[in-house]
Simulated scan of single mutants.
Amino acid sequence: MAKPSAKGPIRTVQIFCVKCKFQLFKYRKGGKGALVKCFKERIVEDYTIEEGVCPSCNAQFARSAMIRGVPALKIVGGKVHMK
């Protein structure tokens, strides 16, 4: 499979924890579908301390994975909300 676009999308979305409404990061998202994965190279601002864990409520919202040979975060369904 092809790697994600090196240029990357322009649209930036804010990712929030559903449980406590804490802003987790800003992400350059491509497409208009649901947020399933976040490529680490597309994260603009990261507000988390530990990768995949909300610093406010300690809920795990993602786990680390390699997707198409690129490091990414696989989002756990229903744990995050994007604006």
Score class of each variant (00 low, 15 high):
10 I>V: 02
23 Q>Y: 00
31 G>M: 12
73 L>M: 13
29 K>S: 07
46 D>T: 00
62 A>M: 10
42 R>H: 14
82 M>V: 02
69 G>H: 05
29 K>F: 06
13 V>M: 11
80 V>E: 02
10 I>Q: 08
41 E>S: 09
12 T>R: 07
38 C>I: 09
81 H>M: 13
12 T>E: 13
48 T>M: 12
20 C>A: 10
26 K>L: 15
50 E>Y: 01
63 R>V: 05
70 V>H: 02
16 F>N: 10
81 H>K: 14
25 F>V: 04
16 F>A: 07
48 T>G: 05
51 E>V: 09
62 A>L: 07
76 V>H: 07
51 E>I: 04
67 I>G: 01
78 G>N: 06
70 V>G: 00
1 M>E: 11
2 A>W: 05
25 F>E: 02
55 P>G: 08
7 K>P: 00
48 T>K: 05
45 E>R: 14
68 R>G: 00
40 K>C: 08
46 D>A: 13
28 R>G: 03
39 F>T: 01
25 F>Y: 12
21 K>I: 04
10 I>H: 13
4 P>C: 05
22 F>E: 15
13 V>F: 09
42 R>Y: 15
48 T>R: 08
47 Y>K: 13
68 R>K: 08
30 G>R: 05
83 K>G: 08
10 I>L: 14
73 L>V: 01
22 F>N: 12
58 N>W: 06
27 Y>V: 01
53 V>T: 14
44 V>Q: 11
80 V>S: 03
12 T>N: 03
33 G>I: 01
21 K>H: 15
37 K>R: 13
57 C>W: 11
50 E>H: 05
35 L>P: 01
69 G>P: 00
17 C>Q: 02
74 K>W: 00
27 Y>L: 05
71 P>F: 00
62 A>Q: 07
1 M>A: 09
54 C>I: 02
31 G>S: 06
81 H>V: 05
78 G>Y: 01
69 G>S: 03
67 I>R: 06
36 V>E: 15
62 A>V: 02
55 P>E: 09
14 Q>M: 12
59 A>C: 11
13 V>R: 10
35 L>N: 03
25 F>T: 00
17 C>T: 01
56 S>Y: 09
18 V>R: 07
78 G>W: 05
73 L>E: 01
52 G>Q: 07
12 T>S: 10
66 M>R: 15
53 V>A: 11
9 P>K: 11
78 G>Q: 03
49 I>D: 13
81 H>T: 03
61 F>G: 04
73 L>D: 02
15 I>D: 01
1 M>P: 02
51 E>T: 08
68 R>C: 14
33 G>S: 11
10 I>R: 13
30 G>K: 10
60 Q>R: 15
34 A>P: 01
4 P>R: 04
59 A>M: 14
15 I>P: 02
13 V>T: 06
13 V>D: 11
49 I>K: 13
69 G>R: 06
55 P>I: 06
53 V>I: 15
19 K>H: 06
5 S>D: 14
82 M>E: 05
19 K>L: 07
44 V>W: 06
26 K>Y: 06
15 I>F: 01
8 G>H: 03
58 N>Y: 09
83 K>P: 12
23 Q>K: 13
52 G>R: 04
38 C>T: 06
43 I>S: 10
47 Y>E: 10
16 F>L: 09
5 S>A: 12
5 S>E: 14
37 K>D: 03
75 I>W: 03
